[in-house]
Design a protein around this nucleic acid. Structure first.
Lengths: 213, 213
DNA sequence: TTGCAAATGTGAGGATTTCTCATGTTTTCA
DNA sequence: TGAAAACATGAGAAATCCTCACATTTGCAA
């Protein structure tokens, strides 16, 4: 039916390289492809990115591109996945040792600021995560990432409120996290000043929820 | 000659009908085109919707389609605009007479339920508003709509908290509204039960913020 | 009623873009 | 050293969006 790559019913990898580069030479070429794609997205957005252009800028043929990426979305997905992997480490580190309300307030505030700065500064991230909804695979990746990050929050909340209902904590954390991403997307698409206000309001709102009894 | 958009150098024109149907016959045909597009989006999503298929199902030629819609996005935009126009009336009606905290609680809760039901039931709305981010014109429409709806909330808040800073109220209302849309999108992309919990959590969170001193 | 201009209708084909595949080259390793 | 596996290539197949030159219908002034 669909040619949409295996469409595994469970939560398997959605888009994976058609063939993993095994030689040093091809690994370097794949890096060049990703770098070229990243640059083009930064310049014109992922929608306007042309596969031919990616190949040309990477100094490879169009055929080589398709040797390692089954389709256009896969190359964007690969970039997105790098971002999530990187930022999860950062999030984990920030929340790992939080054990009281004041610590959560400080860590969460710091985290929001980091994300906001990242969104403002990284055109690729900006582009990829705003177009997220249209692409099933990216949407999946985002949800999975959100859940993973929410888990760090849940761990903290369980420490702060041992008696609370775990399901309720999960829900709160997941929602707060997703709303953070929504707030970021909103903030970067309006004037800087209003964006700052929106992020600050989000921070206050989220903390009010996270610290509520 | 058709001045499609006369290459406006400043801001891109929001897509508008290339030519407004002035005769009864063409008005009916445009309706058929929109109905066909709507049905196809419901069936397969706007991305998979083919212009040729829209024309065929509407019983018109591909040329006629392009007579009234400058491009594919325009036809989706037209559907989206109808939705916003319809729902604004509903929102205004619901919030218009609110004058105390209890009234706001009730009206807001009602509104969230209506929206949630709408998102669950209307595949077209679901599709259009989840792909929103990728399309500049749609994103603009959504933001404008959100601002307009937030205004209704601001009006209520000003009544409830006359002393509050107006800018702060605007920010809160706008954020709360956008987060509501994010919460809806999230809720419909997970299991129904979890979706219900998320919507309930959003409602609580938003009301806490709206009713805070 | 008549006749013409404006509005509308048509669909083959131009233009663009993604992705394939038959074929050639380089690397690995027994 | 030689064969198999991995990698590289780019012309062109396939899929779509959209245009345009020309045909038909409608509104309306004379």
């Amino acid at each position: 039916m669909d040619d949409t790559e295996a469409t595994v019913s469970s939560q398997e990898q959605i888009a994976s390289p058609r063939r993993a580069p095994s030689q040093q030479r091809s690994r370097e070429r794949v890096e060049r492809m990703l770098a070229a794609a990243s640059a083009l997205i930064a310049e014109q957005g992922s929608d306007a990115m042309r596969m031919g252009e990616v190949a040309e800028r990477a100094g490879v043929s169009i055929g080589s591109l398709y040797q390692f990426f089954p389709d256009k979305r896969a190359i964007i997905w690969a970039l997105a996945e790098r971002h999530t992997t990187e930022s999860q480490a950062c999030i984990s580190a920030e929340l790992k040792d939080v054990s009281d309300a004041e610590g959560l307030r400080r860590a969460f505030s710091e985290l929001v600021d980091i994300y906001y700065r990242l969104f403002l500064a990284e055109p690729v991230m900006r582009d990829i995560w705003s177009g997220t909804q249209a692409d099933k695979a990216l949407r999946q990746l985002e949800l999975a990432d959100s859940r993973a990050n929410a888990e760090f929050l849940v761990a903290v909340l369980k420490r702060l409120r041992p008696g609370a209902d775990p399901v309720s904590l999960e829900t709160t954390a997941f929602l707060v996290w997703q709303m953070g991403e929504a707030a970021m997307r909103l903030a970067i698409s309006v004037e800087r000043q209003e964006g700052d206000r929106l992020v600050a309001a989000y921070k206050r709102m989220a903390l009010r929820e996270l610290l509520a009894e």
